[in-house]
């Protein structure tokens, strides 16, 4: 993923667990542009995305000692924190805000994070893998992941039985794993 720096993420996490703020700064430099993009996509509000981004890194700092590398990478650990914060924000809202179609990229505060030495390879791979999913499966997966829709909300939005939504979501995620180079799965999954 993004870990092509000199010091591995895991080493940074163990420094962070000892309270080394420079490790936090390096992790922020590596992951804040992707996490901010995710939060903007989920919340559709720069103010709330900033707030949750801030909370996520503070939480990463506090929870660094509890991080277990065998349970997954640092990026997934951080993104889980950020996404969970965003999900509870979304679920507390009475109504979902309309989507912002395009972020204003002329806004100097929303420049593309190219300074992060952005390598579009991952983006292309993920987009290609998503493109191989059956279109409804893809839509369900994206709406569950980015918009935090529950099974029943998805069933209603797509006019599908609840069981079908569950099956399709599972299939989408397992297929994505296969396309991104993980295990192949049989169709009955």
């Amino acid at each position: 993923m993004l870990n092509r720096g000199v010091e591995p993420d895991i080493a940074l996490m163990s420094r962070l667990a000892k309270g080394d703020e420079r490790a936090l700064e390096e992790l922020y430099r590596r992951y804040s542009p992707s996490l901010y993009a995710l939060l903007l996509r989920m919340l559709q509000s720069p103010e709330e995305a900033e707030e949750i981004l801030q909370d996520s890194f503070v939480q990463l700092y506090r929870e660094a000692a509890r991080y277990q590398p065998e349970r997954g990478g640092v990026a997934a650990f951080l993104f889980t924190i950020g996404r969970n914060f965003a999900l509870s924000r979304l679920r507390n809202r009475k109504a979902r805000p309309p989507k912002i179609d395009d972020l204003d990229l002329h806004n100097p505060e929303q420049e593309l994070g190219l300074w992060r030495e952005d390598d579009p390879t991952d983006r292309i791979l993920v987009r290609r893998a998503l493109g191989r999913l059956e279109p409804t499966d893809r839509k369900l997966l994206e709406e569950a992941f980015f918009d935090g829709y529950s099974h029943s909300e998805l069933a209603e939005r797509h006019n599908l039985p609840l069981g079908t939504v569950k099956t399709r979501l599972r299939r989408a995620l397992l297929k994505l794993r296969e396309y991104l180079g993980g295990k192949a799965v049989s169709e009955e999954a």
Binding site: Y36, A37, L38, R41, A49, A76, E142
Partner: peptide
Amino acid sequence: AVLYQLPESLPPVAP
């Protein structure tokens, strides 16, 4: 790990 590659489909935005 697979799921959290999904944000990679979005262009990164510097906060």
